[in-house]
Computed example of a mutant assay.
Amino acid sequence: MGAPGSGVNWGDWKHFTGYAHVIMSFLPESVSNFAALIATMAEIIFGVCLILGFKIKANAFGSAVLTLLFAVSMIISEGILAPFKYPVFVFAGAALLLTFTEDPKWSIDSVLKDK
Rank of each mutant, 00 (worst) to 15 (best):
L66I: 04
T67Y: 05
L68G: 03
L68M: 15
L68W: 07
L69D: 03
L69F: 15
L69G: 13
F70S: 11
F70Q: 11
F70R: 04
A71Q: 02
A71V: 02
A71I: 02
V72K: 05
V72Q: 06
V72M: 09
V72R: 05
V72I: 14
S73C: 13
S73H: 05
S73L: 07
S73G: 15
S73Y: 07
M74E: 08
M74V: 01
I75L: 06
I75Y: 07
I76G: 02
S77P: 03
S77L: 06
S77R: 08
E78S: 12
E78M: 15
E78N: 09
I80Q: 10
I80N: 05
I80S: 09
I80V: 13
L81V: 06
L81K: 09
A82M: 11
A82S: 14
P83S: 04
P83W: 01
P83Y: 02
F84W: 13
F84T: 05
F84L: 15
K85A: 13
K85H: 14
Y86K: 05
Y86N: 12
P87M: 06
P87H: 09
P87V: 05
V88T: 12
V88C: 08
F89A: 00
F89R: 00
F89Q: 00
F89P: 00
V90P: 01
V90L: 15
V90I: 15
F91Y: 15
F91H: 12
A92E: 04
A92T: 05
A92F: 04
A92S: 11
G93C: 02
G93S: 07
G93T: 04
G93W: 01
A94I: 14
A95G: 03
A95S: 15
L96E: 04
L96C: 08
L97F: 15
L97V: 06
L97H: 03
L97E: 02
T99N: 06
T99F: 08
T99K: 08
F100Y: 11
F100C: 11
F100L: 15
T101S: 10
T101P: 01
T101M: 14
E102L: 12
E102D: 14
E102S: 14
E102Y: 10
E102N: 14
E102I: 04
D103K: 13
P104L: 07
P104K: 04
K105M: 07
W106Y: 13
W106K: 11
S107C: 10
S107F: 11
S107H: 08
I108Q: 03
S110D: 04
V111H: 10
V111N: 03
L112F: 13
L112S: 03
K113S: 12
D114V: 08
D114G: 10
D114Q: 14
D114M: 11
D114N: 12
D114P: 00
K115Q: 09
K115V: 11
K115M: 13
